[in-house]
Simulated scan of single mutants.
Amino acid sequence: MAELSEYSGIYEHISLSRSESGVLEARFHTNGGSLRWSVSVFMELVSFFRNVGLDRANRVVLLTGTGDEFVGPRANPAGSQMATVTEGRTLDAGYWEQVGFGLGRQLLSSILDIPVPVVAAVNGPVLRHAELVLLADLIIAADDATFEDSAHVKYQDIVPDGGIFLAALASFGSHKARSFIYLGEPITAQEALDMGVVTKVVAKGGELKLAREIAEQLAAKSDSTLRFTRALFSNPLKVKAVEFAHQAFVYEGMGYLDRPQT
């Protein structure tokens, strides 16, 4: 088991607080600004989500971002962002097994293993790793929010990883997920609302307030109701993760390593 005092304050990119009713609020950031994706962020999120799931005092989880974007940056063409994301490490097969396959599967499973409802307050564009919010139970989005997979097929000629693949398929359906992945087409908050993916769209700056209100409403329910209902929604996704999402992490690495390296 874990306690908030043991993991609060140990993360460089995650600020934590918890209300008396048990709503754990996690704000993602990089140096106080919008979250910039990296291997360090990757590793922190796996640890964080695992600790969240092990802390019985967390009755509802609220995820939000900082600044103008929820997470970025948007990947650039020709794989130029890979060095930034991997922090200069050589992407050989061993490193990909450790980070791409190992951490990738852990991130997906650690999100799905959170045993209580997850509410996301999306403060702006989600430019990569949209599974961080798409796998939430309820999504409150600012009106300028968008959902995008810039880090794979469109800009970097890379197979999508299992997390974004599963999240896109579950959220958008088979055909819309194809255009989201193959073409990298951003989906606006309003489009996501029309598809039933987003719960509410509000004027920018109001998303966190509404998300907090909803989280507190949920926290008034019993532990058994919260945990068993979460299990009803997350368990089918866990099955799909084992069936084929984990393969996607292997395909991603094989596809990247097969490309001519510059």
Rank of each mutant, 00 (worst) to 15 (best):
A2G: 06
Y11M: 09
I14F: 03
S15W: 07
S15T: 14
L16W: 05
R18Y: 09
E20A: 15
S38C: 04
F42P: 00
F48V: 03
G53H: 01
N58Y: 05
N58A: 07
V60A: 02
L62T: 07
D68Y: 12
E69G: 01
E69V: 08
P73C: 03
R74T: 11
A75Q: 07
N76I: 15
P77E: 01
G79D: 03
G79V: 00
G79S: 05
S80H: 13
T86M: 09
E87A: 08
W96M: 15
G102F: 06
L103C: 08
Q106D: 11
Q106N: 12
L108D: 06
S109M: 14
D113W: 09
V116C: 01
P117V: 02
V122F: 00
P125M: 00
L132P: 11
L132W: 13
V133H: 05
V133Q: 02
L134K: 06
I140L: 11
D144G: 10
F147A: 08
V153N: 03
D157C: 12
V159M: 12
V159E: 12
P160L: 01
P160W: 04
D161L: 12
A168K: 05
S174E: 10
K176H: 12
R178A: 06
F180R: 01
F180W: 03
E191S: 08
V198E: 05
V198F: 04
I214P: 02
Q217K: 15
Q217N: 15
L232N: 13
A241S: 13
V242D: 14
V242H: 15
E243A: 13
H246P: 09
Y251Q: 12
E252F: 12
Y256N: 09
Y256W: 08
